[in-house]
């Protein structure tokens, strides 16, 4: 269970936000609101990129506030800039599993299988700049899944994709929900929210 209580944050001289919700495994919470309403702020607070003024984030009874981003049980997918542009697809994926890139044969096999499942077979040696937007986003989601973290933070992950890529990634995310992963989705798109989310958090 992810338990967010009285999580408050303000930018110096800017607006002040407060978030509160709980989420069970296998659930998807859609955070909805206009631009600047704080959707990305919540995502960054959960991921540990921002430090809250007060409040708590508890995962299975463990307090996450104060835990650095790399030690949190979550992984993020943003609308763009998810990949290291100077590293090829396989390296980008491998770094998600082991930052030292000392991959076992099994881990390499998982990368190959993942690429195949997402229609990216043979793309392993390509650079992110050589991929289309949909292909890049598929690689980003695949890396998030390969990290085997229980919580997925999805910040406009499907925005700007073509219908085919959108449908493929939606199915993939629904499968993750079914496996018990917990999804926090920030999206402008009502259709994405309808398909993926169980609950709505207006901000």
């Amino acid at each position: 269970m992810l338990d967010v209580r009285d999580l408050t944050f303000h930018y110096p001289g800017g607006a002040r936000w407060q978030f509160q919700f709980t989420l069970a495994p296998g659930e998807c919470l859609a955070v909805a609101g206009p631009s600047g309403s704080g959707k990305s702020t919540l995502m960054n607070l959960l991921a540990g990129f921002l430090t809250p003024d007060a409040g708590s984030i508890q995962w299975r009874g463990r307090e996450l506030v104060g835990t650095p981003p790399w030690a949190r049980p979550m992984t993020s997918v943003f609308q763009e800039h998810n990949l290291f542009e100077h590293l090829d697809v396989t390296t980008n994926l491998g770094l998600g599993m082991d930052p030292g890139l000392r991959l076992t044969a099994r881990q390499r096999q998982r990368i190959a299988d993942g690429l195949k499942a997402l229609g990216l077979e043979g793309f392993g040696q390509r650079m992110p700049g050589d991929l289309s937007g949909g292909q890049r986003q598929r690689v980003a989601v695949l890396r998030a899944l390969l990290r085997d973290q229980p919580i997925l933070l999805l910040d406009e992950p499907l925005t700007g994709l073509d219908p085919e890529a959108r449908a493929l990634l939606r199915d993939l995310l629904l499968a993750q929900k079914a496996e018990g992963r917990l999804l926090v989705l920030a999206s402008h798109d009502a259709e994405d929210r309808d398909v993926l989310a169980d609950r709505l958090l207006p901000v």
């Binding site: 763009e80 290291f84 590293l87 930052p99």
Partner: peptide
């Protein structure tokens, strides 16, 4: 964005330098 990714993936110290 790259630094944020690196933080989340645990690319710290020598690994951050290397990759």
């Amino acid at each position: 964005a790259s630094l944020r990714q690196a933080d989340q993936l645990g690319l710290l110290g020598w690994y951050r330098w290397r990759w």
